[in-house]
Design a protein around this nucleic acid. Structure first.
Lengths: 193, 193
DNA sequence: ACAGAGAGACAGACTGGTCGGTCTCTCTGT
DNA sequence: ACAGAGAGACCGACCAGTCTGTCTCTCTGT
């Protein structure tokens, strides 16, 4: 692994723990065992690093959460698989995200402080919500969902549940409670059929 | 309003927007229209201010969210009323919390960075979860809830939903989506009876 | 084959500016 | 006259970012 990759991976961990603003360049240099020269040789600024870390985080997110989804035809089964992936593979990925989901950390920290950075983060949230909504609509059209439910409401509920479980994981760093709430979401989804 | 109260209220707003670490003493002085002398005359440190702001935030939280709860006997109705309060009175309280719920901001920002501060914040979360759990257990004992549901799972689900809605409010600052997900939680609760 | 030039990688001293916090002084109400 | 409130100069630590210098590797002319 070259220095640039090392800096990105170490930053990913540090940002997950302490946020973007809360992590100093010095912290990163120490973690990556390098110096200012080594850092600025690869990144033109701390914000430049931010975007490259965000890209890597998204890659990891997709790798964990979308695993095996393309093999599933049924849209509700797809959502269930996603929730299971989120619960089993992503949420407790302390290797990459020791401080919990980096997107939530970024979003909360940057929304009112660095809007041009948080905009990029929030695009990811909107993308996830869109995916859930599309799958639910597809299912409803196929007549699989009860006709009296609003896919908008379910989307918000699932999304809020996933987000909330993520914050909870940060609170007590135990996977037990988030596990329970994601599992409850899966049950809930099952009952809508 | 005296200077000390003014500093606490302005800090409440600023912390809600930019977090504790992200808000500088200078920001607070400007907002409260005072000086270092005025500040340190009333607070012995920034952390001292933190605890006093936290106390005020809790007072506001209780005032908004527990309003009218003591007049309700039925535990499920109590939870419903709480969720309605949360949705209608608390979440969109831009007066006190222009950047969204201060507890979530604090928790995400401080969990891995100032554990002795976040511990106090998390105690509040645990308290809320405890309240929900007690009400649900009470309801189940009275035979009002379906016997096949786990109150632990519902507690986690409700709590995660509330937390998630709060984060979502921060993301797009529109109350529409959080409203929908809190309303979906109320429906969900209704169906468990 | 080999000397020398050039490029890229990295180290770390240094800059201007901001941080939380202290200290002294003045102003005001009693 | 005096005590408490508040103003603001000041301190050392730390921030992101710059700059100079060194070391190593590769490429080129002979």
């Amino acid at each position: 692994m070259n220095l640039k990759e090392k800096i990105i991976l170490e930053s990913l961990k540090l940002f997950s723990l302490k946020g973007f603003i809360g992590t100093s360049i010095h912290d990163i240099l120490t973690a990556a065992n390098t110096s200012k020269g080594g850092f600025y040789n690869h990144f033109k600024s701390k914000e430049d690093l931010f975007f490259q870390v965000l890209e890597e985080a998204r890659r990891i997110w997709r790798e964990k959460n979308l695993k095996g989804l393309e093999d599933i035809e049924n849209p509700i089964e797809k959502i269930k698989k996603f929730l299971e992936n989120f619960r089993d593979l992503y949420l407790k990925d302390a290797e990459n995200f020791p401080g919990g989901c980096i997107f939530v950390t970024f979003s909360v920290e940057l929304n009112d402080q660095r809007p041009h950075l948080s905009r990029e983060v929030n695009r990811g949230f909107i993308g996830l919500k869109g995916m859930l909504k599309r799958l639910l609509d597809e299912s409803k059209e196929a007549g699989e969902l009860r006709s009296d439910v609003s896919t908008d409401a379910i989307t918000e509920m699932l999304f809020a549940g996933v987000l909330g479980a993520t914050v909870m994981y940060g609170v007590d760093k135990s996977a037990e409670n988030p596990d329970r709430s994601i599992s409850a979401l899966i049950d809930y989804l099952e009952k809508l059929r």
